[in-house]
């Protein structure tokens, strides 16, 4: 059998991610696509811990840990330095969680996107502040339990549409991806690597403790997120939307929700509401996918 991804690993096994951590898979695939000539900066997030405590690191690329809200600006600074030092070929990446992207880091993200700085901005999205103990973020979906949206008062607001916010900046390239489809993510990154300017990659990354799901269901959940249409995966290349994983026969959202304890409290009518929201959003995106 011919492997579909390079065998070379730039993330070593001694990391500190939980069993079944989607964020770990996201990084592993990303490094396979970007290779050794890459520099990362991380804000505060689960990856601050996953990387390993001083003096250890599970990554074989340079990494600058940084403050929570500063990812994009830090990456811009590294990039400017590399340009000034004649090392423009190195790929510079900001790598942040959903909290660091949707919420506290949004301003810096918008600034770098508007300036069209030549960097990758990755958001691995586990839909809550996991590092601090599963508090809601702007990425937490409607209906979810978190420690700040307890069962009796589950989250009543819809997930913020970060992809539309970034798209409004008209960046040269952006994509959504899922850890269940590593080849798709890989292909997108290999393509984006050669595009100059701001690149935004949003990766749905299930989190067993935060989603109250079984570690062995991580890939299944990441796949169901796509197959139900909750998290369609696509790219926007120079303004053109292309769905990279077609889902003609979408599965019911319940298939996805029922595997996660964070949605256990939902009544049938809540699930029906979520199905409606997903259908509306999906139809909206389908229109964009069909635009010539």
């Amino acid at each position: 059998m011919k492997p579909t991804l390079p065998l070379e690993e730039l993330m070593s096994p001694g990391h500190l991610a939980c069993q079944g951590c989607g964020a770990g898979i996201a990084m592993r695939v990303t490094l396979k696509a970007l290779g050794q000539d890459t520099i990362f900066t991380f804000p505060a997030c689960c990856w601050t811990v996953i990387d390993g405590p001083f003096p250890y690191s599970c990554l074989e690329v340079p990494l600058l840990h940084m403050a929570f809200e500063a990812t994009a600006a830090t990456a811009s600074g590294i990039k400017a330095a590399m340009d000034a030092l004649g090392k423009s070929k190195t790929t510079i990446c900001g790598w942040a969680g959903d909290g660091g992207t949707f919420d506290i880091g949004l301003q810096a993200l918008s600034g770098a996107a508007e300036r069209n700085d030549d960097i990758f901005y990755f958001c691995y999205d586990n839909e809550a502040y996991m590092n601090t103990g599963i508090q809601r973020s702007g990425a937490t979906p409607y209906g979810a339990w978190t420690t700040t949206t307890p069962v009796k008062h589950f989250k009543k607001e819809a997930k913020k549409s970060i992809d539309d916010i970034v798209a409004a900046h008209k960046v040269p390239y952006q994509a959504t991806a899922s850890v269940a489809y590593p080849e798709d993510l890989f292909k997108k990154l290999v393509k984006a690597k050669d595009i100059r300017g701001f690149k935004f990659i949003h990766i749905i990354s299930p989190c067993p403790p935060g989603w109250k799901a079984r570690p062995e269901d991580t890939v299944k959940l990441a796949r169901l997120a796509v197959q139900t249409g909750i998290y369609p995966i696509y790219e926007v290349d120079g303004g053109k939307y292309v769905q990279t994983m077609k889902t003609p026969n979408r599965k019911p959202v319940l298939d996805y929700l029922k595997l996660q304890g964070r949605f256990k409290h939902l009544k049938e009518s809540d699930v029906a509401d979520i199905q409606k929201m997903v259908d509306t959003r999906y139809a909206e995106l389908e229109k964009r996918f069909s635009e010539k």
Binding site: T74, A84, Q107, A108
Partner: peptide
Amino acid sequence: IKVESEHSAMAACIGASSAGA
């Protein structure tokens, strides 16, 4: 880098200096 805030100004300086500039 014409950043969007002083916070980002210092963040960019930190990134740049870390990279050796």
